[in-house]
Design a binder for these strands. Structure first.
Lengths: 146, 146
DNA sequence: AGATATTTAGATAAAAAACTCTAAAATAAA
DNA sequence: TTTATTTTAGAGTTTTTTATCTAAATATCT
């Protein structure tokens, strides 16, 4: 569904939402280690999220990353949009370039419907909700990190 | 969602279902040209579909490819299974390896549901239906080929 | 048998994605 | 002001995916 980079981005954002605050950052190396993501690769991804105003970064000691906005104001689809783009939610299921509402492929209508459901799912879920889910024990985001 | 190979495989199967019969084959080069797929690349994909008993191939003049079974006995998910495998329908939406029903990620339940809907869509659609859709003018599978 | 047409197979190449390394820039703390 | 620590940036590598080329195998037709 999404690229590896996009998965890493989502995972990292979830981790940062859990562990950073208005007064404290979480370091790249910690995210990388806890979420088992290649450090330098993650570095590029977080830079991209900074550029897209989803994260704030600070250099030097006590530096690191924190959310650019309150977690309830960041939905998962924004993270996807920043990394993979929203193309996935607009592409033909069979890969026909010319497929659209006027020129539908044999599964166009059905596929369009479920595609929209997936999109709605990521659009409706924000980081605050994911943090609450993890803190309540309803779900997990890493083996160690809860 | 699926790899380029998988898209090509689906497109080619749809084309062959439209243009081959019990007594006639359709040639690789025709599928490649009409569906705008790189010829030698498509060759590998069709070989894979032959090995998975979805196509029959014949060499020499009048040779080519035809369906291994009646089109109503081939569902789209079999094509996907032969090329990409069914992994897509079983993977975490956020990319967590450890995510499952016991250890759910924050979107596990929702994602699982829509993932199953996508799977059902490809499971329920067979090649006969797609051919009928195209022949009735309800949908298209290529610019030239109807 | 010979000519022609087709798939099969293997080697190779190009492009994209995933990942690594090193050095520079910035900043907090001692 | 120096040192230590962290992000940033750019180049470079590896792996995977996508695509191409050539020759062999097979089959049809004359």
């Amino acid at each position: 569904m999404f690229s590896t980079s996009c998965h890493y981005g989502l995972q990292a954002m979830l981790y940062i939402a859990m562990h950073a605050s208005d007064e404290s950052n979480v370091e790249l190396k910690v995210v990388a280690k806890e979420q088992d993501i290649p450090r330098h690769f993650l570095s590029k991804i977080l830079q991209q999220l900074v550029k897209n105003d989803l994260l704030i970064s600070m250099k030097g000691p006590t530096g690191g990353f924190r959310l650019a906005r309150p977690p309830e104001k960041i939905t998962l689809i924004e993270i996807i949009a920043a990394i993979d783009g929203l193309g996935v939610f607009n592409k033909c299921g069979i890969g026909f370039k010319q497929c659209n509402d006027k020129n539908p492929c044999p599964i166009h209508d059905d596929y369009k419907k479920v595609r929209a459901e997936v999109e709605d799912l990521f659009k409706s879920k924000n980081l605050k909700e994911t943090v609450e889910d993890v803190k309540s024990g309803a779900s997990i985001i890493s083996i160690t990190g809860g």
